[in-house]
Simulated assay, not measured.
Amino acid sequence: MPFMLYTDAQMTMEASNPYQLDFNGAGKNEFKLFFGSPYPNEVLKPKSDQQIMLVPASRLKKWEPNRVYSFGNIIEPIVSNGCMYQCLDNAQTGSREPAWRAERGSKCSSGSTTFINLGAKFQPADIQLALTYAGLDTANAGAALELGTQLQGGKSIPVYMRVTNASNSVRSDRSDPCISIRLNATITETTA
């Protein structure tokens, strides 16, 4: 197993990748994961950056013409309007983009595919990362978390995360996660 996020400090249980978000209204989810490799002979180094970093990133895909979407896929318009839309069937879009409506719960279609507006889209700025729980209060929203210039396997680093829902709406990306935490470009070396 390479360097990744785990749910336990012993690094025996991989964290779900990507982490799925459910909100019942405005608020925040806070949790702790562990980053590392269970193998003491592995060393992680940055490929071109000065630091090894965990970076909040968008996974939300743009709408595409003449594409088959599956029930639950979440997308956004080619020119973002700040909303995310979920596919309601297993069907192919047409050549023309839907007339996207900005009201939460509104529907639109293209070809034989119907989409529903899920509300404001999740964004990397919804995530704060820190090496301590107290650090979440001062962590910059959407900023990368620096982990060092080299990491030795066999020990884990606690990573605290806060995901904030600024919208008062119930929101979920459970069917097709829209944001994730990615590792910047790194190299894993094995020592004897």
Rank of each mutant, 00 (worst) to 15 (best):
I78Q: 13
G153W: 02
N29C: 01
A15L: 14
S95K: 10
S95H: 11
V43W: 01
K45A: 06
A144L: 02
F122C: 03
K107N: 06
F71P: 04
I181E: 03
L88T: 08
D49S: 09
R96L: 12
N165D: 07
V163T: 04
T12H: 07
F122R: 00
A166Q: 12
Y19R: 09
N66V: 12
K62E: 13
Y133Q: 15
Y39P: 00
A57V: 10
M13D: 12
P56E: 07
A102T: 15
E146Y: 07
R59P: 02
S106G: 10
E146F: 06
F34M: 08
P98G: 08
S70C: 03
L33A: 01
K28R: 15
E14S: 13
N90D: 14
S95M: 14
K45Y: 11
S167V: 01
N81A: 07
P98Y: 04
Y19W: 15
A144D: 10
Y19V: 14
T7E: 13
R174K: 14
A102I: 15
M84F: 08
G142T: 03
P158H: 09
R59K: 15
T190W: 06
S48K: 09
S180K: 12
N24I: 13
W63K: 11
F115W: 10
V163H: 01
S58E: 06
R182C: 03
K61A: 09
I179H: 06
Q50E: 09
A185M: 07
L88V: 05
R162G: 05
S172R: 08
F3W: 02
R96D: 11
G111K: 06
Y160S: 03
M11N: 02
F3H: 03
F23W: 03
P65Q: 11
P65E: 14
Q150T: 09
R104E: 15
Y6M: 07
S156Q: 07
R171F: 05
I75Y: 07
N117G: 02
E42F: 08
D176H: 08
G36I: 00
T93Y: 05
A192K: 01
M84K: 10
A57L: 04
D137L: 12
S180C: 14
L118W: 06
E189C: 04
K121P: 00
C87S: 15
M84I: 06
A120G: 08
K47M: 11
N24E: 12
Y39I: 13
L21H: 14
L5D: 00
Q86R: 15
S16C: 04
A192R: 06
I127D: 02
D22A: 12
S80T: 15
R101W: 02
T113L: 10
A141D: 11
T186F: 01
A134P: 03
I78H: 04
K32W: 01
A144H: 05
I181G: 01
K47P: 00
P77Y: 05
E103S: 14
G82V: 05
A141V: 02
S109C: 07
N17E: 09
C83S: 14
Q123P: 01
P77R: 04
A141E: 10
R174W: 13
A139Q: 05
S167L: 05
M1Q: 11
R67E: 10
T138M: 10
G153D: 12
R174S: 14
A192E: 05
L54W: 07
V55K: 12
Y6G: 03
C83L: 08
K155D: 13
C83A: 11
S37Q: 09
P65R: 07
